[in-house]
Simulated scan of single mutants.
Amino acid sequence: MSLQSTNPICLPAPAPLSAIASGWNPVCQITYTRDTWVKLLQSPSEYAFDEAKLLCQESPDTWLAWVPDHGEVVLDRSDFYC
């Protein structure tokens, strides 16, 4: 599968160890667009891909997305890498 993105790759700064230990999950402040492929933090099922194509934004923090071998899902911004 080829990744298609109109956005530059965003590599977030490493979180402090105390933040990682507490389970805090930083969210990148990047603007996503429709048809952007994103890397999922956790696949929605054992057989589904670990990438999703953003279809449309439902709210400031959620996207309707399509995951190959799974189907449509609603993703929170904290569910995928930027």
Rank of each mutant, 00 (worst) to 15 (best):
F49K: 14
S18H: 07
F80Y: 05
N25A: 11
T6F: 05
I30M: 11
A13W: 06
P68W: 10
F49T: 08
D76I: 06
C10N: 06
Q42P: 02
R77H: 04
W63G: 02
C56V: 08
I30D: 06
Q42L: 14
T62G: 06
S78G: 00
A65M: 03
F49L: 11
Q29T: 08
E46L: 14
L3S: 12
F49V: 04
S78H: 06
A52E: 06
V27G: 00
W37S: 03
K39L: 08
L40W: 01
T62P: 13
R34N: 09
A48N: 13
Y47A: 13
S59K: 08
V67Q: 10
S59T: 12
L41Q: 12
D50F: 02
E58Y: 03
Y47N: 14
D69E: 15
F49P: 04
N7G: 09
Q42T: 15
S5G: 06
A13H: 02
N7M: 14
S5F: 00
E46V: 14
C56N: 09
S2Q: 14
L17N: 09
D79I: 02
C28M: 04
G23N: 01
I20C: 10
N7F: 10
D61V: 12
D35T: 05
Y47T: 15
L40I: 08
L17I: 05
A65T: 02
A48I: 10
L54C: 04
S5Q: 06
P16V: 01
A21R: 07
N7A: 13
D79Y: 00
E51Y: 14
Q57D: 00
K39V: 03
K53I: 14
I9S: 08
C56Q: 13
D69K: 15
D79F: 02
G71M: 04
F80P: 01
L3D: 10
V73R: 12
P14R: 08
W37K: 10
A21T: 02
L40R: 00
D50W: 07
N25P: 03
A48M: 12
L55Q: 09
L3A: 12
W37Y: 05
A19Y: 13
P12C: 01
D76N: 15
Q4R: 15
C10S: 08
L64G: 01
R77Q: 12
A13C: 05
E72S: 04
F80Q: 01
M1G: 12
S78D: 09
L55E: 09
V67W: 11
L55T: 07
S18K: 08
L75V: 08
R77L: 03
H70I: 08
E51V: 14
T31M: 13
P12I: 09
P12M: 03
L41V: 13
P26K: 00
A65F: 08
V73D: 07
